[in-house]
Design a protein around this nucleic acid. Structure first.
Lengths: 168, 168
DNA sequence: ATAACCTTTCATTTATTTTTGAAAGTTTAA
DNA sequence: TTAAACTTTCAAAAATAAATGAAAGGTTAT
């Protein structure tokens, strides 16, 4: 397999994985393209490489910047904007975890906390089932949350290293 | 807040979280409904509670069974099928992790492994960027994979307990 | 055998998400 | 100020995903 083909395979696989996890396929593909590009690319280049429209490229790049995965660069003497992807995989993982925690996990943890407090007839099986399921899920969600907080602060080697040490 | 309202809130929140993570909203809602039901429910009851069609209810319940989150029950003397959700949150988390690992992570790890092997000109910046990004992502994916394997075998207390012990 | 009862399928319809591209907006240089 | 170069917006179109419901498929009891 040659580089050009391998690049396409990578972009395709990254896009597929993203879409399976609720991330816009194009956004994941643009990210993949930038990840394997040694140099920052222009909007035009992204449009051409992936055959997408200007509007789509612009919005997608902005989203990637919002996620903290891509940064704008300016070259002296040029007006065009260039886009460059963070290449450190562990930083990428942390940024994604951070963003999704904030957008999705935190809100649901808040709601679960409220639902945990709902009072009802302790003799009613419907209430008992509700209360115990919600309490259990709430506890698990909080554990996941704490683990993510740890991960956000940790170095990769420390994080996985320590996990593997215990569970070997 | 009373039970009926709380149940609706829970179903809504679970459905939203699911859809953000690439899981069909209705599937997550049916799961939520069954989770807070002390008794197994019939297709008719699921249809009525969530105002969904017979076909949708049937397919969604089948999917939940495929995921290992719901089981069919039969009551003696009755022909109707009843559906009951696994209530142990840790088992639920493990089943979801197991299923998604199998469906999504394993395939992508395989592709990354192949892309890692792609040969090219070591002087070419494009090749260097491709190779190092793919290698790094591949390594991270394999670490996540190993951690999931550990989780699949572990008890909840052991898993989180050990993580918190190190990172406290 | 057949009728009642229940489950499954799948061609259509409906809803949701994503993309397009032309127009509007902005910045820079002369 | 003007015009060229570049970026952003967003209403409309296209693509994708999900839901419907009537018909077909199975089972069981008589």
């Amino acid at each position: 397999m040659e580089l050009a083909e391998a690049k396409l395979k990578f972009i395709e696989a990254w896009g597929k994985l993203g879409s399976e996890w609720g991330i816009n396929r194009t956004m994941a593909q643009v990210h993949a393209l930038l990840l394997v590009s040694p140099e920052a690319l222009t909007t035009e280049e992204v449009m051409a490489e992936l055959s997408i429209s200007r509007g789509n490229a612009n919005m997608t790049l902005r989203d990637l910047i919002d996620w903290g995965l891509v940064e704008k660069q300016h070259k002296t003497g040029e007006r065009k904007e260039y886009f460059y992807a963070e290449k450190d995989t562990w930083i990428i993982a942390r940024r994604v975890a951070e963003e999704r925690k904030k957008r999705e996990l935190d809100p649901v943890i808040k709601i679960l906390g409220q639902l945990t407090e709902v009072k009802g007839d302790k003799k009613d099986p419907a209430f008992k089932a509700f209360h115990s399921s919600v309490t259990d899920i709430s506890r698990l969600a909080n554990n996941v949350n704490k683990t993510l907080d740890t991960m956000l602060k940790a170095e990769e080697n420390w994080f996985f290293g320590s996990i593997f040490k215990i569970f070997k």
